[in-house]
Design a protein around this nucleic acid. Sequence first.
RNA 1: GGCCGUUUAGCUCAACUGGUUAGAGCACCCGGUUUACAUCCGGGAGGUUGGGGGUUCGAGUCCCUCAGCGGCCACCA
Length: 732
Amino acid sequence: MDKRFKPKEWEEKLYKSWEAEGLFTAKVDKKKKPFVIILPPPNANGNLHMGHAMMVYQDIMVRYNKLLGKEVLYLPGADHAGFETWYVFEKELQKQGKSRFDFKREELYKMVWEFTMKYRGRMEDQLRRLGFALDWEKKKFTLDEDIVWIVYLTFKKLFDEGLVYRAKRLINYCVRCKTSFSDLEVSYEEEEGRLWYIKYPLKGEEGFITVATTRPETMLGDTAVAVNPKDKRYKNLIGKKVILPLVGREIPIIADEAVDPEFGTGAVKVTPAHDETDWQIAQRHNLPMVQVIGFDGRMTKEAGKFAGLRVKEVREKVLEKLKSQGFLEKVKKHVHRVGKCYKCKTPIEPLPREQWFIKIRPLAEKAKELVKKGKIKIIPKKFEKILLDWLDRFYDWNISRQIIWGIRIPAYKCQMSNVKCQNCERKAKSEKVKGDGWFVSLERPEKCPICGECEPKQDEDTFDTWFSSGQWPYATLMSLAAKGEKLKSLEDYQKIEFFKYFYPTSVMETGYDILPWWVARMIMLGNFATGKEPFKVVFLHGLVRDKHGQKMSKSKGNVVNPLDLIEKYGADALRASLVYNTTVGSDVNFSEERIIGMRNFANKIWNMGRFLYLAREKASENKGLLEKEAEELEKEFAEVKGKYFKYMNSYQFPYALELLHEFSWHRFADYYIEKFKEALWQGDKGAFEALQKVYFEILKMLHPFMPFVTEAIWRVFKGEERSILEVSLLSL
RNA sequence: GGCCGUUUAGCUCAACUGGUUAGAGCACCCGGUUUACAUCCGGGAGGUUGGGGGUUCGAGUCCCUCAGCGGCCACCA
């Protein structure tokens, strides 16, 4: 044995043999209890970062449960990561001096596909380097045909049950990325802006009403001025009309509770097409809508002489004109929150558009129930309230995205429907079709099921990525159960033995930062599609920060690369450094000192083995020199073991690791080995065996945390072909 | 504005449901080791647990309050 544990000489070799020996392969075995963790699918074209390394908790649970003798499925996969990938891909295109508009849809799709596939294998290999015991034979991709099929089935079921609908609403639109987003993808940033006070002259009489706004350019689309009904200052103005400056349109003064009399002048300009609150006011008062900002970020025809200008430019122009015509009363500094595209930071424009929405309330209420009744346990507990808060706040979810990388929505429109075309405003040919003409079909229909004559047109949009990843637990298990076959309904999949055995999954382990994006939606969609919770436990880990608690970012230059760390210190050290001396669910401030400490620990474990390995040859006969001490050791270890199981079973993994660290190093090595040394030199077999017995047990208990060093020693002692994963912790 | 978290040794963090002299690692100081490991061993110094008040036989832990830091959320245009 080497004097030191050399991870590089072991890691790849051991991982390959685990895979080759099928130790990560799960199958239905009714004699055993199943334990299932589905890996949160990383972006297929991504690169491993410290956030992925935090998923080590999954592998800890997986290996622990293997050692407990359960049938363990740890399922890998990859996410096509619709918009994320699209964003990176478009940047690549730009570098080549091209744009998405240079290509046809099919061409683009093929290009992104190839772009993604080029990197997919890389991520898989990187996960292997962390030592994750993934069942690679079963790996799934969100764009696998059979997965897409299940996503379609879910969409159809939602549609049939009235939980998905199409409506024209204000959506969050990024004019740079050219797509809409769900409310979650809008990130708000505080900014110092201006509050402009604009005079709107009353119609047919002297005087005016002053409104305050942060977005003067939207006044071109105003269709009312609103005041609070209780506001005495404006009581006599309600019902009167004002003339919209610059535009000349007559608009009414209305009363609405949503207006805060304390803010600004207490009078608000109402722009239904470009502000959510105003949209709602418009609904209540039946106000018309004038869209002055287009999807290209430029002013529309409705903006009259300002048409074609960019929003920023038009603001200046409008202000200039208002000022010169005497409508601008004053300007104040004003700090407010501006919604930005979470990716490119362009201000989000609320714009009216027809899209697909999921009716969230009924789904969220069911999800809440599952959590409240303890059907789904949240660890650590503090996130339970956060999740419930989120579930309370969720509002209908816009799942349409105007990008082509993703799962195209299987919705079609009858061309004979009597609804005006959204784009050309022309009426369709026939009056005989009722409704809006939209229908959902799992496959491209040959004949229109509505009118029977037209060739229906498929929606151009794709699903929000989270719509498909929200189905991941059941979609993967269903597709594996049916071995790629497409079944007629979600119910059919659920009858298959494989699905029944492995679903619901045991634990969903992921970062708390995607609680609303992913976890909440998996619960809602999983429960909807299968009638069951998709997992029994949600275990949330924290974020990895730098040593001073700063967020890692490229611009700060404090990003550490897990692969470099593995290269330098070994995977065991990296894994343990993210667990040792941390609190479950809290952020980890990562420092090189941490990982060095764990590298040393791995080496210490190795050297205990090395010592015993050398002592083994000397052990000849049982001299009974240290019977009392051996008993003492056994007693102390029994206590440690009890605590270990208590910690592991209650998800207190850091405690378990700290316990093993403390006991193995400072009691077993520093105290017992030192005490036994003399006897071992004299060849006392009894003393040797007492030590070895406890040592082997330490190896097994530590294996979930540090799989490589423990397995390496195991093989040194037991022979190349023997894996520590073949033994059971319970048989100790 | 609301919610959540956090404040403990120079640094990074522990201390489960309140219970001995508040513990680790790193750093620091002193000493040791010809055969498991210097990625080691033994010893040491270092804390008024953010401030104030309260409950209790007993508070880092529970309650109130103030302050700092971090995060999430909210339609004040």
